[in-house]
Design a binder for these strands. Structure first.
Lengths: 156, 156
DNA sequence: GGACTATCGTTTCACTTGAAACAGATGTCA
DNA sequence: TGACATCTGTTTCAAGTGAAACGATAGTCC
């Protein structure tokens, strides 16, 4: 029995990443739903609109890394909830320019500090500069996995 | 316009965690599927069996953080693929003891070094001790989010 | 102008997910 | 023993997912 046979799932980075991320996602999703009645996808759309209003659905796709079907559904939900309005771009009728309604802006301005507060609670216990160090490492992981995807793994 | 209105999604930890984890998950899932014909859930079951054979489905639930429906489906898939065999525990007929078949063990022993290699590639670029530092920070995050769940957030 | 290709956003489709219902087996307590 | 609660693993169900098909618009080339 060599070392190769003693594999510890608990020490496997992709596994730990998945478990923790799912917990974080669930915790945040529940709060957004309970307190504001929106999903994480909808919250991301609002977050982008907060900085880049007005913007098309495709612009949101590029900024959120969500696929276009997911964005389409999130936008539909926000329209139904009266948080967004949309208008056809006169210069290109394929584009739907999205913007906050008054209610949408109020919701956005209420969520932002709440999201920040939740993030602060979440990152308590990471120690000095922990949040920044974590984001740096996460960015390096992201670069690497994108390179893996692009390369098709080379070894295969 | 105060600072409260300038929210950057790209600097929001839960968002970054979700995006990167999804990329990692997809990259690994594709390789497990292409090279071994199994899903991530099935791989986790194999990984647990590698250390804790024989074990019941419920034991796997506890060790993998997957819910029992997911484990049930993963086990069914592995049984169908001929990688596992199961027998009723004579002492408690509710329990199904799961163990590798010969083929299952061969598959396990082939996947483990491959998974390790993929993790090594993934963590290239994290710098000195980067993997260990990342896992430490991730564990701290995990502790915190579990505390948030338990507390129901206190602030609400 | 007309044919062809590309882009935008929605919808369809097959699949996955977790919560809940469920059936079977075991434990508990009077 | 019998009534009842608990535990294990499977299945059902409704909701969510991304890939792909789709209709509509725009750009390109002849």
């Amino acid at each position: 029995m060599t070392d190769d046979t003693t594999f510890q799932l608990d020490d496997f980075l992709p596994y730990r990443l998945s478990v923790t991320m799912n917990r974080v996602s669930r915790a945040f999703a529940r709060r957004y739903a309970d307190e504001f009645g929106i999903s994480i996808a909808e919250w991301r759309v609002l977050a982008v609109l907060g900085s880049f209003q007005p913007i098309s659905s495709n612009g949101i796709v590029e900024k959120t890394q969500m696929d276009k079907a997911k964005v389409s559904r999130a936008v539909a939900g926000l329209l139904a909830a009266g948080l967004l309005r949309r208008s056809v771009d006169p210069a290109d009728q394929r584009l739907l320019k999205l913007a906050f309604t008054a209610k949408g802006r109020r919701t956005y301005e209420a969520i932002v500090p709440r999201a920040r507060a939740l993030e602060t609670v979440l990152t308590q216990g990471l120690g000095q500069d922990g949040r920044a160090r974590f984001l740096t490492l996460l960015a390096a992981l992201d670069r690497q996995v994108r390179a893996m995807d692009q390369a098709g793994d080379l070894a295969s």
